[in-house]
Amino acid sequence: MLEAKLSEAAILKRLLDAVKELVSDANFECNEEAITLQAMDNSHVALVAVKLEASGFKRYRCDRAIPLGVNLGSLTKVLKCAKDDDILTLKATDDADILSLTYEAKSTYTDRIAEYEMKLMDIDADTLGIPDTEYDASVTLPSAEFSRIVRDLSLLGESVRIEVSKEGIRFVSDGEAANGNILLRQSAEAAPKKGSSGVRIEMNQAVTLTFSLKYLVNFSKSSTLSKKVQLMMSNDVPLLVSYEFNQGHIRYYLAPKIGDD
């Protein structure tokens, strides 16, 4: 059976907001070490991978690996009933028919305990093996900055060209009526430390790739989870957008747009 206690329901709420735009149903794979989720969108363009480490929970127990097939829309509804700072407990038995969620209010005024149960489903989806890739360019930037860039550019056109060079990282969008480009330079600090909030670029070679903005805007919903986002790119392979947070990570892979062959 699974029993997992999160000190704040907000984490799960935000995670779900970041995933549900992409897929409607997915398996939460629970095992001793972590809860993971991997799902691809209908047209096989983007993939989302979530990991919640067992150590990130206040209490975590999972005796044997179980998949929890969840309709993300339903789970969102059930989570709407929780306040952000509620203590959340997830429970499921080994046959994984029902997921039960308990919310304990932290408020000192009321001693409120709410219990919800939702039906689970059998989801037959292939798991994809994601090869470990050495990326040619890795850019870390504030997640709010990334959200703003993709939101702004999505008003102009459908796709964005991302160019990483010595100069910095440039986002270019050519729309029918207007075009625009945004350049982020490497932060001024000589050797920016990992913890700093600026833009950090590591690259072996210049990279230029084009992506659909619609998907990037979806990905950027995760900025509520982490202050920083990392973009990993190599020519002609999918982009990796990674948000790391205390309890784990959420990673998106996006296939690039390709020119006429």
Binding site: M40, S43, H44, V45, A46, L47, L128, P131, S159, T210, S212, V237, P238, Y253, A255, P256, K257, I258, G259, D260
Partner: peptide, 9 residues
């Protein structure tokens, strides 16, 4: 430009 797919990767 055509949107690529993850299947190939």
């Amino acid at each position: 430009k055509q949107q690529g797919r993850l299947d190939g990767f």
